[in-house]
Write a protein that binds this DNA or RNA. Structure first.
Length: 588
DNA sequence: TATAATATGATTAGCACC
DNA sequence: GGTGCTAATCATATTATA
């Protein structure tokens, strides 16, 4: 097994062209599979028509596609795409005043290099120049591969609050109705300057990602039709969030005889595990479930695993028999977790556990107000004072540190309750605020480990994990503490602080496996790159991740916009990546 | 200028009561 | 079924400070 340094220098370089893969497979066009590089090289009319249809459906003009296919050969999909993009994509940026001539220091595309996967800044700045439409939806849809023209038409024809999913359906319907209509990508061949290499690269990345999403949505619709025959526990448009969140059973509260039947399409391997806040806006979990094979979410409150509540929903295809908890069992009450606080804990503060550990904590002014509220009373304060103070303590998870004095939890105490090693977030974080934030966004390790424990006997020699939104490594720590060797881990995380924290843990615990952690943006994880990672690792056993909750959580007073929100929309990238991995498993 | 501190409700759901 | 109350919530924008 290689060490981590070798993973950093792991080379994914490939040359442009149709057959660049070392194992002879063409990984550029997912629907084509490895056979596209086969020696026989089909030249049938059917193949030619299929190639033409494929690219015209992507929005390129038919004339240009025919010309290019004839020139390059229908099996040469990568070269066709190169040529089409050379004449079309840069214009979308150039029309916004961007320079057309390349300023890239590299004369060749490097989008297959893992070192170059996080550079999305130019694409964002280019796309944000569209100022006449809602920028976020415009950007997201264009980044998915739809053309600016298509997106503009859809947005202009819809209500301002139309969801991303509805806009995608609108565009898809328009494409089906008019497959050869004029398209913004269609541009005259004459009068072009040399294409901007960097933008060309970015457009190409977006193109692939968009096609993956559309292909996935298309296949998902078919699967949904098939699954209508399956008696699903998930009703049409509403999932009831249970008040008692003990999921499919938790330690001490087993659900005797519980069995579930997964749809065939969802059965692993690969196993997958998705997480997000339970108390999301109405309909959010129904949408999530529909996108994840109609599997019933398992709602679990981490109060069964530690001294703090953490109400989360999990959708996974893991077995549910013979789960076991991590040992030792963590303290389940505040008194056990923070025994020193008991001395100052007033009898009228009836809290036995903390509420959800969030990303920020109460101010010194709040604690000072509480101190002043409580001073000067003989014995217990009046009931209305008790009630006011207790509400503040519940809201901010204050802990009693002296007479009439409360304080926020320390980062080390949060680490303890969330199941992380002491000072886990100390090294990589630059400030206390960053520690609170990264912890507030993380898994409760014991909860996740309980669910993942069923993998221990299945992967005694190590597991290969694709970890999206990996944060500070809660999933990996859970696997590690379960005694499951981390053979190969790809950790995708946008926060540099969180990546540093996880890298520090990986090195401190002398992991023997390979860690790839230089992919920052999940939207940059295209099928092509996933296929290379699969080739390199031998395949992923587990695709795990909790997508951003920013637009779902009730804590967000500003942008609780649901699954279409700026951050939470990345849920669809989890689905896209998962389905790509599943497809690769089927093909292999 | 970067970081820390502080202020900022709404959306759900359950429950009791009428 | 309608109303009012209680309770919880992986956050973000603005202001203050070093």
């Amino acid at each position: 097994m290689d060490d981590t340094d070798s993973s950093d220098s792991w080379d994914f370089q490939d040359e442009d062209g149709p057959c660049f893969s070392s194992n002879g497979s063409n990984s550029v066009i997912p629907s084509r599979g490895a056979s596209m590089c086969g020696a026989e090289g089909s030249t049938s009319n059917q193949s030619r028509s299929k190639a033409i249809s494929h690219f015209t459906e992507m929005g390129f003009s038919e004339d240009l596609v025919i010309k290019t296919v004839d020139e390059k050969g229908e099996e040469n999909t990568e070269a066709i795409l190169e040529t089409l993009l050379a004449y079309t994509a840069p214009e979308e940026c150039a029309s916004q005043g961007e320079p057309v001539l390349s300023h890239s220091s590299s004369p060749e595309f490097e989008w297959d290099s893992l070192d170059d996967l996080s550079d999305f800044s130019d694409a964002e700045s280019c796309l944000q120049n569209e100022e006449s439409v809602p920028e976020t939806k415009m950007m997201q849809l264009v980044a998915m591969g739809f053309s600016i023209g298509e997106v503009s038409a859809a947005i202009n024809s819809s209500d301002p609050d139309t969801s991303i999913a509805d806009l995608m359906d609108f565009i898809s319907a328009a494409q089906m109705a008019e497959p050869t209509s004029d398209h913004p990508r269609e541009l005259p061949l004459e009068g072009r300057g040399p294409p901007d290499v960097k933008k060309k690269k970015l457009v190409k990345q977006e193109f692939h990602r968009g096609r993956e999403i559309r292909a996935w949505r298309s296949s998902r619709k078919e699967e949904m039709e098939k699954r209508k025959r399956y008696l699903s526990p998930v009703e049409d448009d509403f999932i009831k969030i249970p008040q008692l969140m003990n999921g499919f059973g938790v330690p001490g509260h087993p659900r005797i005889g519980f069995k579930r039947k997964l749809p065939d399409v969802a059965i692993g391997p690969p196993y997958f595990y998705f997480e997000n806040v339970a108390l999301a806006p109405k309909g959010a979990w129904s949408s999530i479930s529909r996108s994840l094979f109609n599997i019933e979410p398992e709602f679990v409150d981490s109060k069964y695993f530690c001294a703090a509540a953490r109400k989360r929903g999990y959708i996974h295809n893991l077995p549910t028999d013979n789960r076991f908890p991590l040992l030792p069992i963590p303290p389940l009450t505040i008194a056990e977790a923070l025994p020193l606080s008991s001395r100052w804990w007033p009898s009228w503060d009836v809290r036995k556990q903390f509420n959800c550990l969030l990303t920020c904590y109460g101010s010194a002014l709040e604690t000072e107000r509480i101190r002043k509220d409580l001073e000067g009373w003989q014995g217990d304060p009046p009931e209305h004072i008790q009630k006011r103070v207790l509400n503040k303590c519940r809201k901010w998870n204050f802990v009693w540190t002296a007479k009439n004095s409360v304080a926020p939890l320390l980062p080390e105490e949060v680490e303890l309750m969330l199941g992380y090693p002491r000072n886990h977030t100390r090294g990589g974080a630059t400030s206390q605020a960053e520690r609170y934030k990264s912890l507030g966004n993380s898994f409760q390790v014991n909860t996740v480990a309980f669910h993942l424990s069923v993998l221990k006997n299945r992967y005694p020699n190590g597991i290969s994990v694709l970890s999206l939104f990996s944060g500070i490594g809660g999933a990996e720590i859970a696997l590690h503490q379960l005694g499951i060797p981390l053979r190969f881990v790809v950790a995708v995380e946008i926060s540099e602080v969180s990546r540093n924290i996880f890298r520090g843990w990986w090195e401190n615990t002398d992991q023997k496996g390979i860690l790839i952690d230089n992919i920052n943006d999940v939207t940059m994880l295209t099928a092509n790159k996933i296929e290379k990672l699969v080739d390199y690792s031998g395949g992923f056993d587990l695709v795990i991740g909790g997508s951003p909750c920013n637009n779902l959580t009730g804590s967000n007073r500003w942008h609780r916009d649901g699954l279409d929100g700026k951050q939470s929309v990345l849920f669809y990238d989890y689905c896209r990546v998962l389905n790509t991995v599943k497809r690769l498993v089927r093909e292999n």
